[in-house]
């Protein structure tokens, strides 16, 4: 009896993206954040009296943080839902919802798929491609934590070398890297089909309008919801343009 065909060629992403082990890892990440919050809250409660911070101040701070996070959290949830079909719930929850962000993780996944000669979402997007993309975005996301773990103690000591970095370089280099990366990734989508062009254009225009309105009307919620609104509008346009 031959073993069943290797599942490498299968494009049923959600079959492996919802593996119980991945759900366990999501629960683990949630758990770590809860434990960290509890430890930090206790440390604050101990130190608070010495800086004239009352228990009332602590309650107010907690409530202010919680209330102000409602809008942005729902906005992130909307973006995350749009990505469920591509990555499955566990990857979306741990990558886009926490730790990373839609911009980074979608880009990293696209880049990783590209190195295998595959494209996200079409028939070349097999289970193996998903696994490699998930690997690359997670290890990439871990690099932020590694950088934080290394740099925070250095910065606390006021390390002269870190402070000596040219402020002009600190402003120009990251901006150039990010805009260059997103422009290249975005333009790479355009030759794929007319629908890709429409989707990209609608997404970019809706975001531009949201940001303009946010500034003109002083409504900062438009800035928070910009990404989610743009994605939904662009996907709507894609649905119409592709005629399905």
């Amino acid at each position: 009896m031959h073993a069943p065909l290797a599942p490498t060629g299968s494009t049923d992403i959600l079959a492996i993206a919802n593996a119980p082990v991945l759900w366990l890892c999501v629960a683990g990440v949630f758990g770590v954040i809860v434990v960290q919050s509890l430890i930090f809250l206790r440390a604050v409660r101990r130190a608070a009296p010495s800086v004239q911070m009352t228990p009332g101040d602590i309650r107010t701070s907690f409530r202010s943080g919680a209330v102000s996070a409602i809008g942005p959290s729902l906005a992130v949830a909307l973006v995350a839902i749009a990505l469920l079909a591509l990555f499955g719930a566990p990857a979306v929850l741990s990558r886009i919802g926490l730790i990373g962000s839609a911009a980074y993780d979608v880009s990293a996944a696209g880049i990783a798929a590209g190195t295998l000669g595959a494209k996200l979402g079409d028939e070349s997007y097999t289970q193996s491609v998903f696994a490699v993309a998930f690997f690359a975005m997670s290890i990439g996301g871990a690099m932020w934590m590694i950088a934080t773990l290394i740099l925070t103690p250095l910065l606390r000591r006021g390390d002269a070398k870190v402070r000596a970095i040219n402020p002009a370089a600190m402003a120009i280099v990251p901006a150039a890297a990010l805009i260059g990366a997103f422009a290249c990734l975005g333009f790479t989508e355009l030759p794929k089909s007319g629908t890709h062009v429409v989707t990209f254009a609608v997404s970019a225009s809706v975001m531009a309008v949201s940001l303009l309105l946010a500034r003109a009307l002083g409504k900062s919620w438009l800035r928070e919801w910009g990404l989610g609104i743009s994605i939904v509008a662009a996907l709507g346009a894609a649905l119409l343009a592709s005629g399905s």
Binding site: A82, F182, H196, F200, M207, G226, L227, L235
Partner: peptide, 29 residues
């Protein structure tokens, strides 16, 4: 589901590119 999967990448990147350009405020770059 299919349309979402196929076109979510340009749908994210268009907005993200505009957001990056606006928030960086560096016309020359």
């Amino acid at each position: 589901m299919n349309v979402t999967r196929l076109y979510v990448l340009p749908a994210v990147l268009g907005a993200v590119l505009v957001q990056a350009i606006v928030s960086m405020k560096q016309p020359r770059t």
